[in-house]
């Protein structure tokens, strides 16, 4: 079966410094794949390159087609979507405006857009309550929900999430990860980059451990959880 998203031998440089060295990664339809690793391992760089924010060498295949030379907007149009660590919301605009802009790429009727908006509101009721509020006034958890909601407005086929739990209270993290798992049931495939390794592996089907810009270990998430090296290094070793 062809992977929905296949990254092959990807190299990413910041100037003369190579941050990602020949990483290969596969994501099948309906799968959640996690990428874990320490700070500076190249996880966020990998996602930025996959969406086209950073130039890269190697192959990026989406649904069997090479997208490595396409711009960010073309990749988004094909159904690839990134929720970055920094969220990149439109802070001075309302929650509703942010969500509507999420569907910008869809070029669909107002009625379809409204239907999708209601689905997002159903998934994130707090966004419905805050619809007229400016995005910059939301709490951390609400911002993450808005970032996810905005991404869902574009009806992505592959959603790449960069540190969705970053800076959030444990209860909110559980809520966010439960929503992420729920997205898979709606047919969205997810590439999850997360420092909270245990939470990431518990939420995913398959995992990659990135160290110094290279894949150190990969395997099914339940297997990785019991891998001694992963356990020692990333799961607290207790």
């Amino acid at each position: 079966m062809t992977a929905l998203l296949a990254i092959e031998d990807l190299h990413v440089c910041y100037g003369k410094v190579e941050a990602v060295h020949g990483v290969s990664l596969h994501l099948d339809a309906g799968q959640i794949v996690s990428v874990i690793g320490p700070n500076g391992a190249g996880k966020s760089t990998l996602l930025s390159a996959a969406i086209g924010l950073l130039p890269s060498q190697g192959r990026i295949l989406f649904d069997g087609q090479e997208i490595g030379r396409l711009g960010v907007e073309d990749r988004v149009e094909r159904g690839l979507c990134l929720v970055p660590e920094t969220r990149e919301l439109f802070g001075e605009m309302s929650v509703l405006d942010n969500l509507q802009l999420g569907a910008y790429v869809r070029r669909e009727s107002k009625a379809d857009r409204r239907r999708q908006l209601e689905l997002v509101y159903a998934r994130f009721p707090r966004l419905a309550e805050r619809r007229t509020q400016r995005a910059e006034t939301l709490s951390g958890g609400e911002r993450q929900m808005l970032a996810l909601g905005r991404a869902l407005m574009s009806r992505p086929r592959v959603l790449m999430l960069d540190e969705p739990s970053l800076g959030l209270a444990p209860l909110i993290v559980d809520e966010i990860l439960a929503i992420v798992r729920g997205l898979r049931e709606d047919g969205v495939s997810i590439l999850l980059v997360e420092q909270n390794a245990l939470a990431a592996l518990e939420s995913s089907d398959y995992g990659y451990v990135l160290e110094s810009g290279e894949v150190a270990v990969e395997g099914r998430s339940d297997v990785l959880k019991s891998d001694e090296r992963v356990f020692e290094s990333y799961l607290g070793g207790v």
């Binding site: 149009e77 979507c81 919301l89 605009m93 405006d97 999420g102 910008y104 574009s154």
Partner: peptide, 23 residues
């Protein structure tokens, strides 16, 4: 209008605008 909002969005956050497909 959505197009007007897209212009504002580009002004507010260029990267964010790209990530929702605004060219």
């Amino acid at each position: 209008t959505l197009v007007g909002k897209a212009l504002r969005a580009t002004a507010v956050n260029r990267t964010g605008a790209q990530l929702v497909g605004i060219r």
